[in-house]
């Protein structure tokens, strides 16, 4: 059904690539993160909700077609459909049905509640290709409501201390999820680095309710950020832009923050364990729910996960992709 090629995962029976990392003729895109959606291909196919984000990435000229979740189309000998993956807005699993049975390629996914995107739906299949960014038993997420409460408390204590709260997070998905989750518990406006604004705007257009956001980049000189929450991409850390934020406490929202040493090594004041990827129990639960007899793991801790599944009696292996999972910003 699928083969690993220099350009990415290729389906020869359907004549398309899935999340290719080189320009190709036909590309199926699971979601809009940079390690999955790369520019230059002749034609893209994605889930409906992903189009707005891909447009902002690829520009107005790119040929982007889309499907609603669940609608089946035929490409060559293959029936293709997208199903919600719960990762970010428009993220999709790709279901492929053909002579080799039903294959599902998960893309990135999570099982936790997320107000910014459709929830993951398990899709029965014979072969399941799962991401394994956090495929180790040390990765286990607390409920996001608890993490959000921590973030709000951190913001509050920084307000009391007259500091700004700089929360680093990924520009697509995490920032909007934070803003949407925070909107459930507060109505204070937040600030965001200029790089984040277009994607926040795209989410708003898609109907996601989020905190009001002010640009943190175009404020007049001398604007005080004391007491404010500022979302910023990791790439802004240590840049001169940070200087205007004054006395600050910084934090990183990522599943990577689960490990104390990672946070300390990067010397963040706080690390909030909030991930858009499945944790270990969610990976195992999902694999079970698909009913797949064969599971291929990709990215992150693919080998331990595959070995673990093998020990559980599943047919398992790994497949190579260029996915990066949670960007560490290095």
């Amino acid at each position: 059904m699928l083969s690993e090629t220099p350009a990415g995962v290729y389906c020869s029976a359907g004549g398309f690539y899935i999340d290719p990392w080189l320009p190709v003729e036909h590309a199926l895109i699971t979601h809009a993160h940079g390690d999955h959606a790369r520019p230059g291909s002749a034609a893209y196919l994605c889930a409906d909700a992903s189009v707005a984000l891909l447009r902002r990435r690829f520009g107005a000229d790119a040929l982007i077609e889309s499907l609603p979740y669940g609608r089946r189309i035929t490409r060559g000998a293959i029936t293709v459909s997208f199903h919600p993956a719960g990762h970010v807005l428009g993220s999709a699993q790709v279901r492929l049905e053909g002579p080799d049975g039903v294959w599902v390629l998960s893309g990135d996914y999570k099982r936790d509640d997320d107000p910014t995107c459709a929830a993951f739906e398990p899709v029965p299949c014979d072969t399941f290709i799962t991401e394994s960014t956090f495929g180790l038993p040390i990765y286990r997420w607390d409920p996001s409501s608890a993490v959000i409460a921590d973030i709000l408390q951190w913001w509050d204590s920084n307000r009391d201390a007259g500091k700004s709260s700089v929360l680093f997070c990924y520009t697509i998905g995490k920032a909007q999820r934070l803003l949407a989750e925070l909107a459930r518990v507060t109505d204070r406006p937040a600030h965001a680095h200029g790089m984040m604004l277009p994607m926040i705007e795209a989410y708003r257009e898609a109907g996601v309710t989020m905190l009001p956001v002010r640009p943190a980049t175009e404020q007049p000189r001398g604007t005080s950020f004391a007491g404010e929450l500022v979302l910023a991409p990791l790439s802004a850390r240590g840049t001169p832009w940070m200087r205007r934020l004054g006395n600050l406490s910084d934090a990183f929202a990522s599943g990577l923050m689960r490990v104390r040493g990672v946070r300390r090594q990067r010397s963040f004041d706080r690390g909030f364990v909030l991930s858009d990827h499945a944790d270990w129990p969610a990976l195992l639960r999902t694999i079970e729910e698909t009913g797949a007899r064969r599971v291929l793991a990709t990215h992150g801790h693919a080998e331990p996960l595959a070995r673990f599944l093998g020990e559980q009696g599943l047919q398992s292996g790994t497949i190579r992709t260029a996915w990066e999972g949670e960007p560490s910003g290095d």
Partner: peptide, 20 residues
Amino acid sequence: WILNECYAVVGDGAETAALM
């Protein structure tokens, strides 16, 4: 073996055990 994999990521025995 899987504990060893975890330890390689965490780098601290007590923390690895606590996380698991």
